[in-house]
Design a protein around this nucleic acid. Structure first.
Length: 571
RNA sequence: UGGGGAAUAGUGUAACGGCAGCACGACUGACUCUGGAUCAGUUAGUCUAGGUUCAAAUCCUAGUUCCCCAGCCA
């Protein structure tokens, strides 16, 4: 080992802090609970697309498995044929893989366990722990009681086991209409936890299932399925979100009643992010009401959306590692997510020059037809990324924001009479701003360059206060650039006046499409998902809409912008 | 009015009876051919009230606030 074993002057090195779930696992391992075995699972319902909240769970479950030398299963919780579709299964698999995790051959489906579940249900019936109930849905609700009052027992609760077995078999055989009967566990109608008031185990649903087809017309509920699925897969730690805490007694009850291996359910707080919504229901609404272009709209917190926006799996994994895991309900500042992408992209993204809102610059003392190839660094953070050549000529474009006719004190970019540097090129001085006589708008800058400053350094040692990015008008390639901002105008989109909902806080400026942008010629061939930094502007990636000759870029995130902050503060 | 949970800087998260630390943010400054990056620094916290203890974020008691549960959704 090259690392010297340095003694700590002040006693022991503090143990690396671990979250409460890893603490439980450590305790279990110390106690020899599963012989040191760690086996988790990520159990999505295939009824929607994965979002960054799922990423937290994926990173937790797969991450823990990896750290402890264990395994993590991918299991589709497909017990409700009405809402689930193959399309979602495919997208979920794509997303998990993209995030960087591998379930190897352990791709499971709750529906694969239907037969076993059915046999176990018969066992509970035989043990007098389950019964067929003829109450309608509405009646079941009435009989359940309320939060403060006990429920009433179903009149069918004490049917003989033989009759229950017969009825249950006929439920499966399709003799009864949807909703006409259920199989229920016989627990306690006065239990303070409503989940324990004779919960439904099976409902009749004459509906085709995406995997089992027409084989079943009764389907197990989540509660009756989940624990037993965990048990069959020998899961050691069944990690889920807080809202299932109330279900744990039932999870444990089923496993105990069956006398089978019992994993331990552990609940953690789901992820919330500022300036966005996370629930499947609300995301679905955004899609259905066309507030966004689809599930992979780059403004969506879905993994598909983030991917299209240009986020990297590394950045998302790092984000998930940093937010921690706890039981406190919390909302993470979206700036942390943005910090994580910037941090990663700063290290790996090649730099390029692109002008989003072009302002024409004519270098009056530059030879008309001359073109020079100037050397530019591809990534100052990564010398191995090398250099490239960018063409320079008499007519250029710079960013409109980089010129002001009457600059305020803290603005140190280009202005009449002022000298700045064009990155990797020359110092230029602005001699004149040509304006449209009708509108007063500046349409062109007439500047002179100092040939001695080629490459960007002045031999006489004089300094400039700003370095601008630019493109050569003749050589630049046109592009469309899509700028994104937060989807909502306030940190908590749900905080709305009485009678309104989260859609009223949608940010009307969350998407701005810029046409006629000019990017350096080296970008002409970049294909979808190509990520780079447009110097001084932010990180961008090529959208799938992009075509050769019709480039489309998405802005992933801006660079930190001190000038923008100054402007904002002065407003 | 039942049951189950949770409260630590602006936001997250550590500290497991012994100096309240870290990250993001915000704010200074240095440096800079990206107003980027980097570096240095500043800011700011234990829900409340009692109690136990030499010592409490941590243990005890009482309270406050917030979240979840009355799907044949998951």
């Amino acid at each position: 080992m090259s690392e010297p074993n340095t003694p700590r002057p002040h006693g022991r090195e503090p143990a690396a802090p671990v979250d409460f779930i890893r603490q439980i696992i450590n305790d279990d391992n110390r106690a020899g609970k599963h012989g040191g075995r760690v086996h988790t699972r990520f159990p999505p319902e295939p009824n929607g697309y994965l979002h960054i909240g799922h990423a937290k769970s994926i990173c937790l479950n797969f991450g823990i498995a990896a750290e402890y030398g264990g395994r993590c299963n991918l299991r589709f919780d497909d017990t409700n044929p009405i809402k689930e579709e193959q399309e979602y299964i495919d997208s979920i698999k794509t997303d998990v893989r993209w995030l960087g995790f591998d379930w190897e051959d352990r791709e499971f489906y709750a529906s694969d366990y239907f037969e076993q579940l059915y046999e176990w249900a018969r066992q509970l019936i035989s043990d007098g722990k389950a019964f067929v109930c003829d109450l309608t849905g509405e009646q079941v609700r009435e009989y359940r009681g309320t939060l403060t009052e006990p429920g009433k027992e179903s009149p069918h609760r004490n049917r003989p086991a033989e009759e229950n077995l017969d009825l249950f078999a006929r439920m499966r055989a399709g003799e009864f209409a949807d909703g006409s009967r259920t199989l229920r566990a016989k627990i306690d109608m006065a239990h303070p936890n409503l989940n324990m008031r004779d919960p439904v185990m099976y409902r009749i649903l004459h509906a085709g299932h995406h995997r089992t087809g027409a084989r079943w017309c009764i389907y197990p509920t989540y509660d009756w399925t989940h624990g037993q699925s965990d048990s069959m897969e020998r899961i050691t730690h069944s990690i889920c979100t807080l809202e299932f805490e109330n279900h744990r007694p039932l999870y444990d009850w089923y496993l105990r009643a069956l006398g089978v291996y019992a994993p331990r359910q552990i609940e953690f707080a789901r992820l919330n992010l500022t300036y966005t919504v996370m629930s499947k229901r609300k995301l679905l609404r955004l899609v259905q009401e066309r507030r966004v272009s689809g599930w992979d709209d780059p403004r969506m917190p879905t993994l598909g959306g983030l991917r299209r926006r240009g986020f990297t799996p590394e950045a998302i994994r790092n984000f998930c590692a940093r937010i921690g895991v706890a039981k406190t309900e919390s909302t993470i500042d979206v700036q942390l997510l943005e910090h994580c992408v910037r941090e990663h992209l700063n290290r790996v993204a090649p730099r390029a020059m692109a002008v989003l809102r072009p302002l024409k610059v004519v270098i009056t003392n530059y030879p008309d037809d001359q073109v020079e190839q100037l050397e530019a660094i591809n990534n100052p953070e990564d010398p191995a990324a090398g250099t490239r050549e960018v063409p320079f000529s008499k007519v250029l474009y710079i960013e409109r924001d980089d010129f002001m006719e009457a600059p305020p004190k803290k603005f140190f970019r280009l202005a009449p009479g002022r000298e700045v540097r064009l990155r990797y090129a020359y110092f230029i001085r602005c001699d004149e701003a040509v304006k449209d006589p009708a509108t007063g708008e500046v349409t062109e800058l007439r500047c002179t360059y100092d040939p001695a400053t080629r490459g960007g350094d002045a031999p006489d040692g004089r300094k400039v206060k700003a370095t601008l990015h630019w493109v050569s008008a003749r050589h630049a390639v046109a592009a469309e650039v899509r700028l994104y901002d937060h989807l909502f105008t306030q940190p908590d989109p749900e905080t709305v006046p009485e009678g309104q909902d989260f859609t009223t806080t949608l940010n009307p400026a969350s998407l701005e499409v810029l046409q006629g942008c000019r990017v350096e010629p080296g970008l002409a061939e970049s294909g979808p998902a190509y990520r780079c930094q447009f110097e001084r502007l932010g990180y961008f990636c090529v959208d799938p809409d992009s075509q050769p000759g019709r480039l489309v870029f998405n802005r992933t995130v801006t660079l930190k912008d001190t000038w923008a902050k100054i402007q904002k503060a002065e407003r």
